[in-house]
Write a protein that binds this DNA or RNA. Structure first.
Lengths: 141, 141
DNA sequence: AGATATTAAGACCTTTTTATCCTTTATTAA
DNA sequence: TTAATAAAGGATAAAAAGGTCTTAATATCT
């Protein structure tokens, strides 16, 4: 559904949100080990998220990453990494697929796509981090 | 959502279903040009579909491919090419993700996944081919 | 039987995605 | 001002996905 990079990005954002609730930052090493992701690859994704203005980075000793101070939806994170293919793209891969020029499955998926978009728009990192903090959900196996 | 190969597979199956309604077969060349897919890659996917018992192939002149004679759901085609990751896989990529050990987004996606599964199970190739035959939907741009 | 049309199978190439390494630059604290 | 720490970025490697090409096998027609 999402690319690997996007899966990591969501876990990164959720983890950093939970760290933020404790009023501190987390560095690359801590992030990578907490979500069980390869460090160097994680660094690249962190940079993408910084460039997308979803994170701020602070260098030097006691530095690390911080989630920007506003509500962030899942959709923003997904868009930053995977673009809008999940929302816009045709199920059967047609370049042009709309109600006026639909692929055979178009109508069968309209409702699913709407629902998916709804979830991505309405789910905020703040909602997801709570489960992690309370120990009800997990970022790694 | 689906792999490229799976998108092609669905279009192949839909096209062959529509051809079958005319009481004839279609060969590789015709299939590939009708769904606008690379011929050699299409050949590979056709073979996979034959091995998965969704198609029969007939060699020799006037040969081609034929959809097996029973109702086939979208899910069967997707499973044959992409496996069950779309149904089973975790949104955030956890190896273990279930109601007892959920990822932070697990519950937000349960309903979507159910709905998606429903569409895949309940939509048959026969339903999709009708739109193509009547000219209401399209397999290429 | 021979010629031809057709699929089967698999080796091979290309591009994209994922992952890693290593050097540079910036920041802070002592 | 220096040592330690941390992010940034370039280069590249490994793996997966996507795609191509060649050869072999098979069925049909003449």
């Amino acid at each position: 559904m999402f690319s690997k990079a996007c899966e990591y990005a969501l876990k990164i954002m959720i983890y950093l949100s939970s760290v933020q609730s404790e009023g501190r930052l987390a560095g690359l090493k801590e992030v990578a080990s907490s979500i069980d992701s390869p460090e160097a690859f994680t660094a690249k994704i962190l940079q993408q998220l910084v460039r997308a203005n979803l994170l701020q980075s602070l260098r030097g000793p006691n530095g690390g990453f911080r989630v920007v101070d506003r509500p962030i939806t899942m959709l923003e994170v997904v868009n930053a990494i995977d673009g809008d293919r999940i929302i816009r793209g045709c199920v059967l891969g047609l370049d042009e697929c709309s109600s006026v020029h639909p692929c055979p499955a178009h109508n069968n998926f309209v409702v699913i796509r709407e629902q998916l978009k709804g979830v991505l728009v309405n789910t905020q990192l703040a909602d997801l981090k709570d489960g992690v903090i309370s120990g009800n959900s997990f970022l790694k196996v």
